[in-house]
Computed example of a mutant assay.
Amino acid sequence: MNSILSDKKPLVATGEFSITLSPPEAVLREGAPTSGRHTLSKTYQGGLQGRASGEMLSAGQPQNGQASYVAIESFTGTLGGQRGGFSLAHFGEMDNGSETLKVNIVPGSGNGELTGIRGHLQIRRDTGKHFYTLTYWIIY
């Protein structure tokens, strides 16, 4: 953990989000495996309220349970009653039944009343719905 955050108590926001993901656009490079580029659009509800849009790159064979993705999404709206925006960086991987996902707030991306925000987001899927827990700090 960043030493600047070690003595601050984190804030937590929870809720649900919906996502629209475009079909993959193939990214072809001679002699390399095919990867896909997607656009994404999200609507957040709960402690985090607003919209996000971004891009995702994926590779591998998700139909066989082996793939990775990286993405950047930019959020704008409110968090805990504070208006502004920030970006989230994703890294996800699936391999033979095991899945890992790391989503961090991009340092320096906060604006408006969310300037100085740091933290990470956890995503949970349940019966076709997406839920989040955002743990964050705002450094003034």
Rank of each mutant, 00 (worst) to 15 (best):
S3W: 07
S6R: 13
K8R: 15
K8S: 14
P10C: 10
T14P: 10
L21A: 03
L21D: 04
S22T: 15
P24G: 08
R29M: 08
G31K: 02
P33I: 09
T34H: 05
G36P: 00
G36E: 01
H38A: 08
L40S: 06
K42E: 03
T43H: 14
T43A: 15
Y44A: 07
Q45G: 11
L48P: 02
R51E: 15
R51H: 14
A52D: 03
G54K: 00
G54N: 02
S58T: 08
S58K: 01
A59G: 14
Q63W: 09
S68R: 12
S74V: 13
F75R: 04
G80V: 07
R83A: 15
G84Q: 11
S87F: 01
S87L: 02
A89E: 12
M94I: 12
M94H: 08
M94K: 07
D95T: 11
E99S: 06
T100I: 06
L101C: 13
S109L: 09
G110F: 06
N111V: 09
E113F: 03
E113N: 12
I117N: 01
H120P: 01
L121E: 11
Q122H: 07
T127G: 00
T127V: 07
F131P: 00
F131Q: 11
L134T: 11
T135C: 10
T135S: 12
Y136N: 05
